[in-house]
Amino acid sequence: MGTQLSEIHEYLRWRKRFPTVWCAGCGDGTIMGAILRAIHDLQMPQDSIAFISGIGCSSRMPIYLDFNTLHTTHGRALPFATGVKLVRPDMNVIVVSGDGDALAIGGNHFIHTCRRNIDITMVLINNSIYGMTGGQVAPTTPIGAIAHTMPYGNIDPPFDAVELSLAAGATFVARSTTYNIIQTTNYIKKALQHKGFSFVEIISQCPVLYGRLNGMPDPVDMLLWQKEVAVPLSKAKKMSPEELEGKITTGIFRDEIRPEYTEQVYALSEKLQEKSED
């Protein structure tokens, strides 16, 4: 067994839960590896991690991982995670979510969790389509792309999850791709270390549905497409809007410290308890 595999092996429920539900060529496994390497590098104890998801392909991830795992309802991972974090502020709460889960059905929870700046790390796996239900249009599907519920090309303008999280008040915001997995791992590591709500969007691939419908049925085609469209933030700043057309900016968009929600809740509680003891 190579070192790459062995270091994440202990975090997997390998005895019971494999193979995964993910198709060959899916980005979810790659990202799961990145998350586990980040956790491993930071030496976070498994018992200290609550790994929470909603519904979707990527939301199956907790099933395979040897942490305290909570696989919840569609779109609701963040409020469940909020409950866990508020009761156990000492735990590291990680949410993994797909683009439909986080931005469509869970959009309201997403912006409000950003706003509260609660110490949760959210990894958003954006494959531009609904995978588990079989290829319907997502709030991230590019204009003109084909989906089973947009058979004549998408006319719904997509969300930019990074812009959305910045506007909603997330204090750590980054974006990367499955192609550039080393960068992805580093961003996740930074996000896990961040105090406050940290958000990492990862552009991923769904060759079986999105790729097949949009002329990239081979996973390699999709990774090469990622390589082509990804533009580092520093470079993007120097480019004109026309040049940025169809590109995806990657990098760390925000990394700042604001009062964290859980700390404030407990500080208030301590203050009131001291008062009542007087």
Binding site: I52, R76, F80, A81, G83, K85, L86, V87, N108, H109
Partner: peptide, 23 residues
């Protein structure tokens, strides 16, 4: 020493208390 949180809607409210119960 307890926690009160006003959530963004009732779906989030019940989700948060189930999360709290899991903890």
């Amino acid at each position: 020493g307890g926690v009160f949180i006003q959530m963004e809607d009732e779906i989030a409210s019940i989700a948060s208390i189930i999360g709290a119960s899991a903890a």
